[in-house]
Design a protein around this nucleic acid. Sequence first.
DNA 1: TATTGTTATACTCTATAACTATA
DNA 2: TATAGTTATAGAGTATAACAATA
Lengths: 168, 168
Amino acid sequence: MRKASPGLSEKQLGAYFALAEVSSLLQYAVAEHLRIDGDLSYVQFQVLARLVDAPGGKLRMTDLADGVVYSRSGLTYQARLLDQRGLITRSPSPDDERSVMVAVTDAGRDLVAQVLPGHVDRVRQLLFEQLTSDDVIVLHKVLGRARDHMRAAPPRSAKPRARRNRTG
Amino acid sequence: MRKASPGLSEKQLGAYFALAEVSSLLQYAVAEHLRIDGDLSYVQFQVLARLVDAPGGKLRMTDLADGVVYSRSGLTYQARLLDQRGLITRSPSPDDERSVMVAVTDAGRDLVAQVLPGHVDRVRQLLFEQLTSDDVIVLHKVLGRARDHMRAAPPRSAKPRARRNRTG
DNA sequence: TATTGTTATACTCTATAACTATA
DNA sequence: TATAGTTATAGAGTATAACAATA
């Protein structure tokens, strides 16, 4: 592992491991806070956050599934939980009657607003506290580029149906 | 979310979201490969990788739990699975008879060696393919600093017992 | 008393397949 | 036929609490 691998340089391996560990620690800390402070799982928070961010506070189920969870049924499960708590509503799309539009409710927005400061606080303490603003800019630039690249390739909610050749 | 938050700047939020999405996409892709190629979950691979990396190929259960999983019982569960497949062994520590030393077997090393090239390949394709070597160096430096900071704080396997003041 | 690890148990989450309905 | 979503179901994983054993 630590020795020079055939595919990745020492530097690359180090960067990869650092990324993996940082995101793991960060996600764990943040998830703990969300649970305590808002009784939300990380996935549920992501769903709400995406909706708050979306124009009109609305998104189709499939778009949500692509962004957050990796199966339609998984999102249906989470959406039911959020629906039962009154944090979102689900209604048939006027454009396409097959689609379901998910919308944040006021209660959902309130909960996000309630949870966000503490969330942001943890992130700042853990990740940004001793990063310079140059670090942040570079991080944003480099990871943003990686994200765009990675977004381009993968299907996801489509995969269970489109059944592509499995490598193994 | 996208508006200026009280705690994080626009740049910081962007960096945070990019980090979250990159690591999520990366982990998903890598986990899929590990499952197909070696019938290993991501956690199981991490356990094996840490052992391969450790001096003598051995670590205590608690040290493994701190590094990988977040509860002792969770690690016991994973360790049993790996043990049953002959990838690790568990034996009482000679130093402290309460402790259990976990050691990779040859089969475990072989499996890591078998899986690693494809793993590394995916990481390179998804993450490094269009990053410059300067990007990688900066990423390593910045994330490494963040990791060291985050490592300093958290308990984890200790938490369930040492029961510290909960923030919420 | 504190620490290490296991076990029993309950719960959350995710994915697969089968199904309905619309395009 | 293809797409959108739900449901039933089964499996993996995790955490909590209670436990035994050692320091």
